[in-house]
Write a protein that binds this DNA or RNA. Structure first.
Length: 842
RNA sequence: GCGGACGUGGCGGAAUGGUAGACGCAGCAGACUUAAAAUCUGCUAUCCGAAAUGGGUGUGCGGGUUCGAGUCCCGCCGUCCGCACCA
């Protein structure tokens, strides 16, 4: 007698071991089959998986399993983004070595992932903190160094005073460190940089071809790269100041040059600094500018302020025209040249500024008819023709720009220039738990790369985290090294690489991981680009831009033959949960509260609870559901199924107790269907409608999984199950149930395997081909036609599929309901859409 | 401010310009049961109506295109996300 209930407790484990033993999910580099590389963003080993991971990896797993059934050789690997700050924080708090802590976390998270039955190729597992990985990263760093894509420079960097490390621009959010939240300071340090700006143009152009990427992400990267074209030129100063006699500015609107009414410098501008040395008031003003905040709110309310230096700048197109030179709080030093010329009529900031300091506002661009319209509180940035602009008058904006640029270049006071928002990527971190930068500093030879045969440069084990800062710097001997060039005593670089470097090439290492080099280009070429990459949108800029850059950089030095790593990208939504708040304002976790009628109360004392917004699961709001107990209670399949149901994958998924209950019920419904035909003589007889539904479902589910519309695939499976349950026993019903097991196998693989065995099949269902669709069954032989009168539905009729127009028209007009509505009125027109509807216009 | 996404029942959401609300959740009624759980059956946008194999209304709001609009166009309103004194 077969169990009446599916018991995931024993079944899940059993099939997970069978999959592991069979090696079925290990990708074969030599396979003659078409290939598909399905990749989810690898996790940071924080210690526990969370629902976001579960959702992410379930989606990838369904696609990977499905593609395998479709006949692809699938690469679906998993690894660990294992370097980073939390390990050092743990080391400080718990007195454990970061490596020990990280490896323990990896072990427990690996176990957790395994309980979900993901079809990963565990033979390719990697952790970025292992020397086998980061040693190869050091080799790549040296390749890039030798390829001229790495340089070192003294620069003002973003310094996080809490984490005591440098941050990339991308890691500074609203002036605060992305991890610590501490206000970022500016410091001058010698740092290693990667020349991402060399690739700005192609990283931007490449976005156009990434058809499989969400528009949103492409736009975000485009904005981040921030290309601006314009004219860079200089104003001569009326009086030379020490060694400075010009002010260099950049403008995207050189056409408005005759609307200029002032020149403004950033407080950090060399000229401003120089003037401040002899002017206490200016110095104070500059200090104030630097202190002012950079958060969105502050910027919005902040007043435009300036300090008149008293200097005059000579207009390049009219030597008799002098403009006042201000230091202004809204001019940024790290964009363009750190100085601008102000055109109040056509730039809102300039206008605000001009009004405050009573500077002239001259319109130089006007739409037809507005030539004499004054500018009030709003600057005009629309289209039009030039006015009040001497030789430019009457020109279109573009022509005027070209004219001014040509003239500047001819006369030698300016050049056409492209300015980027994107900065080179500073990769030095003053941390222990990262990839050591493989460089030796020699007093005579300078920075010398470590010879590759001396790699990996392994992190020392004997370090302490008692005091903040970088333990590598304090280590008594680790930094001692001989210069590889001249043999003299030298010093090893003690900075480590930003962890985003680690994740910029792991997808290559997954495809090929030889012991003696980072990867085998030929093997990588077989698998890459990743056909489907899945992860959170929070990586839309940082990780995804760096990975694109790294791939292009390696291609540019001949290490790779392709330039974009991810053909398709999917950014999945978050897993959310309702929040609960106690009367005193403290957050409550879902297991501390219960529903009492329509209200919520605290279980412990019955006091009132207010339910808050459905939000991303977070520790601070206490609305986190730990996957582990859920998996033990309901089994992997129910959890996986819930992750796929209801919400479209790109949107947020609200976790609910009733939702997981529903998935559990569904798994049991499946089981009842499977057991209903097990150990029984085959049924006979036809069920044409069910057969048709089966084939439609096979086709629909395939289409929806391929399109990552898992919620729709789930709905189609429900429809089939509902129909099978209502159907009388028949041979077609038996077939439908057998095929159902295959259809659901990518989503709920454990019960599918169990059913496959139960129904007397050999081998693994995971290795079965996706069922063939009988195309002839996809079209209904009878269709329901809507009959409308003036676009309103009045009746429906059922006719043979493919009935001709005149027959439909006749049938429609014969409808009693239709006749009643028409009531003898003239029929003006009859629209007939075969197999769809008839619309009678009266 | 700029860019993007979105707005459909109590909730999550379906719907190549062609029967709005598939499917799930929740709810209601019933069956089975000593009882509960589990399971099964039916109902479930809304208003009028005792009901109808009756009608009205309905996809944020206002217009438009069309025989026909949730879908396309124009203008608003709102929510969310990203970027942001970027010259």
């Amino acid at each position: 007698m077969t169990d009446q209930r599916f018991n995931p407790l024993s079944a899940d484990k059993r099939w997970q071991s069978r999959w592991a033993e069979s090696g079925i999910f290990e990708a074969d580099d030599q396979s003659p089959k078409p290939r598909s590389y399905v990749l989810e963003m690898f996790p940071y080993p924080s210690g526990r998986i969370h629902m976001g991971h579960v959702r992410n990896y379930t989606m990838g797993d369904v696609l990977a399993r499905f593609r395998r059934m479709q006949g692809f050789e699938v690469l679906h690997p998993m690894g660990w983004d294992a370097f980073g700050m939390p390990a050092e924080n743990a080391a400080m708090e718990k007195k454990v070595h970061p490596g020990e802590w990280t490896h323990a976390n990896i072990a427990s998270m690996r176990d957790q992932l395994k309980t979900l039955g993901f079809a990963f190729d565990w033979s390719r597992e990697l952790a970025t903190c292992d020397p086998e990985y980061y040693g190869q990263e050091q080799a790549l760093f040296i390749d890039l160094f030798e390829g001229g894509l790495v340089y070192r420079k003294e620069s003002a960097v973003n310094w996080d005073p809490v984490d005591m490390t440098v941050l990339a621009n991308e890691q500074v959010i609203d002036g605060k460190g992305w991890r610590s939240g501490a206000p970022v300071e500016k410091r001058k340090l010698s740092q290693w940089f990667l020349k991402i700006t060399d690739f700005a143009e192609e990283l931007l152009d490449g976005l156009k071809d990434l058809k499989g990427w969400p528009e949103k992400v492409r736009t975000m990267q485009e904005n981040w790269i921030g290309k601006s074209q314009g004219l860079q030129f200089h104003f001569a100063l009326a009086e030379k100041q020490q060694d400075i006699d010009t002010v260099e500015v950049f403008s995207t609107r050189p056409d408005t040059i005759f609307g200029a009414s002032f020149v403004a410098l950033s407080a950090d501008h060399p000229l401003a600094q120089q003037l401040a040395e002899n002017d206490d008031k200016l110095a104070a003003f500059c200090e104030e500018c630097k202190k002012s905040g950079t958060t969105a709110a502050e910027l919005e309310t902040m007043e435009k302020k300036g300090f008149d230096t008293g200097l005059k700048a000579v207009h390049p197109l009219d030597p008799s025209w002098e403009l006042p030179v201000f230091v202004a709080n809204f001019v940024l030093m790290d964009y363009g040249t750190g100085a601008v010329f102000g055109v109040p009529a056509h730039d809102q900031r300039d206008l605000d500024f001009a009004r405050k300091y009573a500077l002239p506002v001259t319109r130089v661009v006007a739409a037809k008819g507005d030539e004499d319209a004054p500018i009030h509180d709003e600057a005009y940035s629309g289209p039009g023709k030039l006015v009040n602009s001497r030789m430019l008058d009457g020109m279109e904006i573009e022509t005027a720009q070209k004219t001014v640029i040509d003239r500047a270049q001819t006369e030698g006071w300016g050049t056409a220039q492209t300015t980027w928002r994107l900065r080179d990527w500073g990769v030095s971190r003053q941390r222990y738990w990262g990839t050591p930068i493989p460089i030796i500093h020699c007093e005579t030879c300078g920075a010398v790369p470590v010879p590759k045969d001396q790699l990996p440069i392994v992190l020392p084990e004997d370090v302490s985290f008692d005091i903040p800062g970088n333990p590598l710097e304090r280590h008594p001997t680790w930094a001692d090294a001989d210069c590889p060039k001249c043999g003299q005593a030298a010093r090893r670089e003690t900075d480590t690489l930003d962890t985003f470097v680690d994740s910029s090439w792991y997808f290559l290492r997954f495809a090929s991981q030889p012991g003696d080099k980072p990867f085998d280009a030929e093997t990588v070429q077989k698998w890459l680009p990743v056909s489907q990459y899945i992860g959170g949108v929070e990586h839309a800029i940082l990780h995804l831009l760096y990975a694109r850059f790294w791939t292009r950089a390696l291609a540019s030095i001949g290490k790779l033959d392709f330039s974009e790593p991810f053909e398709s990208l999917f950014t999945q939504g978050m897993v959310t949960h309702e929040t609960y708040k106690h009367g005193d304002g403290s957050w409550l976790s879902p297991d501390e509260v219960r529903k009492n009628g329509t209200d919520w109360e605290v279980i412990a004392d019955g006091s009132a609870v207010t339910t808050g917004r459905v939000e991303k699961m977070s520790k601070s709001k206490k609305n986190v559901i730990d996957p582990d107990p859920i998996i033990s209670q309901y089994g992997a399949d129910a959890v996986r199924f819930f992750m796929l149901s209801d919400s479209p994958p790109e949107r947020d998924l609200p976790w609910s107790e009733s939702g997981i209950e529903g998935s559990w019920r569904f798994v049991q419904r499946l089981w009842r269907l499977f057991t209903s035909i097990a150990d029984q003589a085959p049924n006979s007889g036809e069920d044409k409608a069910l057969k048709r539904k089966l084939h439609q479902t096979i086709a629909d589910v395939a289409e929806y999984i391929e399109g990552l519309s898992f919620n729709k695939a789930v709905a189609k499976v429900f429809e089939l199950v509902n129909m099978i349950e209502k159907a009388a026993p028949s041979a077609d019903r038996d077939t439908a149930i057998r095929n159902l097991a295959i259809i659901v196998a990518p989503m709920v693989p454990h019960i599918a395997e169990e059913a496959w065995a139960l129904l007397g099949n050999d081998g693994l269902i995971a290795a079965q081909p996706w069922p063939e669709v009988d195309e002839s069954l996809l079209v209904e032989d009878e269709v329901t036609i809507a009959i409308q009168v003036r676009g309103k539905l009045r009746d429906t009729i059922t006719v043979a599929q493919g009935s001709d127009k005149s027959a439909l028209e006749e049938l429609a007009l014969a409808s009693q309901k239709v006749q009643r509505i028409i009531d003898g009125a003239d029929i003006k027109k009859v629209i007939v859409v075969p197999d769809r509807l008839v619309n009678i216009v009266i």
